[in-house]
Nucleic acid binder design. Sequence first.
RNA 1: GGCCCAUUGGUCAAGCGGUCAAGACACCGCCCUUUCACGGCGGUAACCCGGGUUCGAUUCCCGGAUGGGUCACCA
Length: 492
Amino acid sequence: MTVRVRFAPSPTGFVHIGSLRTALYNYLFAKKNGGQYILRIEDTDQTRYVEGAIEGMLNSMAWAGVNHDEGAVLEDDKLVEKGDHGPYIQSERLEIYQKYIQELLEAGHAYYCFCSRERLEEVREQQKAAGMTPKYDGHCRQYTLEEARTKIANGESYVIRLKLPENRDIQFSDVVRGNVTVNTNDIDDQVLMKSDGFPTYHFAVVVDDYLMGITHVIRGEEWLISTPKHVYLYEVFGWKAPQYVHLPNILNAERKKLSKRQGDVAVEDFVRKGYLPEGLVNYIALVGWSPEDNQELFSMEELIEKFSLERVSKSGGVFDTDKLNWINSHYIKESPVERITDLAIPHLIKAGYVTEVEVNEKYQWIKDMVTVLQDRLSYVGEIVDKVDIFFTTEIKPEDQEAEEILKVEHLPQLLEVFGEKIKAIEVVDEDVVKGIFKEIQKETGIKGKNLFMPIRVALTGAVHGPDLPLTLKVIGKQNILSRIDYVKNNLL
RNA sequence: GGCCCAUUGGUCAAGCGGUCAAGACACCGCCCUUUCACGGCGGUAACCCGGGUUCGAUUCCCGGAUGGGUCACCA
């Protein structure tokens, strides 16, 4: 039996970081087992549909390199479907659901319900007031199919509910949780078909997973509790249920479910900040799964090779930006400068350091700047916090420590000598600066920290920063000289 | 609140009856570096609490506590 798995987002916005991980695990599991990974769009809630959401999600998945074998894909910016188990968009499968819901109705496993939302609300309130768990009271179970159809013919609005047997334990085995048992008395007669003719998730997911030949359902743990309803549906249809795999949640620092409004949770947020796809994917793979050995850094190929559902953890994991940064910085260091430069340019433009028209002629210079900074970035966008030293004209000591350094008594002499030597050369590059430092050391006896730090602070205002010779190369001869003048005139 | 699930350092986590309880991030220290980083080496730091079972429990069982999930015509 070939493995077939699916990722089934609903197009209500962006791809949540937790969804990315769910998709990734599905993808890894499929690839590992030579199976297929399908992307199905679950757009059964007409009220929550967001324009352009599908396209955005598809782009995020493509960015991350989690590519599906079947499902909705973007071709020349147009949404098309690939694969022979389609349609893969639920709103295009309405007739299919109709057929199966009729089957259920005829067999007595589902019934029409005419209760108004008001009545439902009322019942719930009463139950709550009585200290009971809110649950549909089965009011419409009394109607025969025939009676119900008469009411429908009279124009009454209805939904279709699952008719659950009383007091029956439904058990299923979850790959990560083991055996889970829930009694039907604790489950609602779930609405299967809504009054607008669309199926609910619970119905569509079962019909589609069956029809699409899904063998393993790998999804977030928020679905664990409703799985018995799905298992029951498989049973009454006489279908074989898939293997269930419920993934633990990804939590924030407060150990709450990671959600919007408390920072970055959308894949696009990380793209925007300048995280690399291999960094994000590598990190996210490690929240909720661990390899047999101690490996931390993985390419997608290695993840596929090492991944197994048996090693998925049971409990939720906190999203740790520090570790993400560490992993991401690894991939930034590994990348060709050109790649980081190209990613950095939009950030520099946005921050106002360069204009779009300047970019071409300044490309080499920008590349030099990126070369100097590349090893120090956690994510590319961070570069805008570090480039000020290359653009500033008026040196300002960044803190008290910097101010102290500017007060050292040999600074005026040092700047004088250094300025003269810079003046004397054509082009400032790394080796030239190193040579100059050597000469100064020989001529004045100033060396080490006493040599580098005063120059660094005088020319950049900062105590910390990238390698000085490289930094000076990027600053350039003219700017070095004018900064020296500025410091002499204003800060000494 | 009912039901379901979980609980190893600050965080991710290994462990699957006998270990001085791995490793990584973060933090601290040292080394490398004529500066700053990178890097290398080292350090601090954990089995939620009770009962059982067992010669022996972090590991198995039962309670409790804590945390999470879920109780929609949302997914």
